[in-house]
């Protein structure tokens, strides 16, 4: 669980990227942060992680949040297991090496994202989708229950997007507090309990079902967007349709 009060950030001499953000990332729920490029989604995440000092306001958390960055292959040829094991950095004292227990946790985390069979593969040779899931496993391996994901689905194909979204939903059902930034309103509509919309002049936070509507999204992306309710598997689901021709 993670909570902010009056959080605001601006670079020195710049305009406010966001201001007065009162956000609660609750356990058992998924929060989706949306906004156009450059609106400060990543900056907000960095403030939540404590990587950036906010200009004003405070961030409270009962334990560190685990971070899933956007994936890069890196220049070093680590195995998937070694990559996931790095999530244990806080749990292993400075001059010690990982123990059996840590390696077991890494294996469990890989199991959780369904990639245990890739443990011995070289991380840079995996596909973008697999690498993203490995980074998620690394976050899970830390043992912390607040997960912050930076556009995890950005470079994934549809099937991998599905895998990632399903895992995030399962994790929330298991009591994890999940926050992700995304450019896909559809993902937010399928997944989110809470939405954070980073408008140019304000940040709107609220129930995802209320906020993910045509008006809000059209304003947010400066593009006509309509939403459509379709029935699916006995329930209803919101589909988001951007109108690119406008």
């Amino acid at each position: 669980m993670l909570e902010t009060q009056g959080l605001g950030f601006r670079y020195r001499g710049g305009d406010w990227l966001f201001r007065g953000v009162d956000l609660t990332v609750a356990a058992g729920a998924v929060t989706c942060v949306m906004g156009p490029n450059g609106r400060g989604k990543t900056t907000l995440l960095r403030c939540l992680l404590g990587l950036l000092q906010p200009t004003e306001g405070t961030v409270h958390h009962d334990e560190p949040a685990a971070y899933v960055p956007q994936t890069t292959p890196g220049s070093f040829d680590f195995s998937v297991r070694e990559m996931v094991l790095m999530g244990r950095a806080r749990a292993i004292s400075l001059f010690s090496q990982p123990r059996r227990r840590d390696i077991d946790k890494a294996e469990e985390a890989l199991d959780r994202v369904g990639l245990r069979h890739l443990s011995d593969r070289s991380f840079p040779t995996l596909s973008g989708g697999e690498r993203q899931l490995v980074l998620l496993a690394r976050a899970l391996c830390s043992g912390y229950r607040t997960l912050l994901l930076d556009e995890p689905a950005a470079a994934l194909d549809l099937r991998n997007q599905g895998a990632l979204l399903r895992i995030c939903r399962e994790l929330a059902a298991d009591g994890y507090a999940v926050l992700m930034s995304t450019h896909h309103p559809d993902h937010a509509a399928w997944l989110a309990d809470q939405a954070v919309l980073m408008h140019a002049d304000r940040v709107v936070i609220g129930d995802a079902r209320d906020l993910l509507c045509g008006d809000q999204l059209s304003e947010l992306f400066a593009l006509p967007v309509s939403t459509h309710l379709v029935s699916e598997g006995g329930g209803t689901r919101t589909l988001v349709a951007p109108h690119y021709e406008a």
Partner: peptide, 22 residues
């Protein structure tokens, strides 16, 4: 030698490593 496992973490991007508590 005692820091050798941590050298793995040094190869990550700065922010990524810091988010892992390094």
């Amino acid at each position: 030698v005692p820091l050798r496992w941590r050298l793995n973490l040094l190869t990550l991007q700065d922010e990524e490593a810091r988010s892992l508590g390094v």
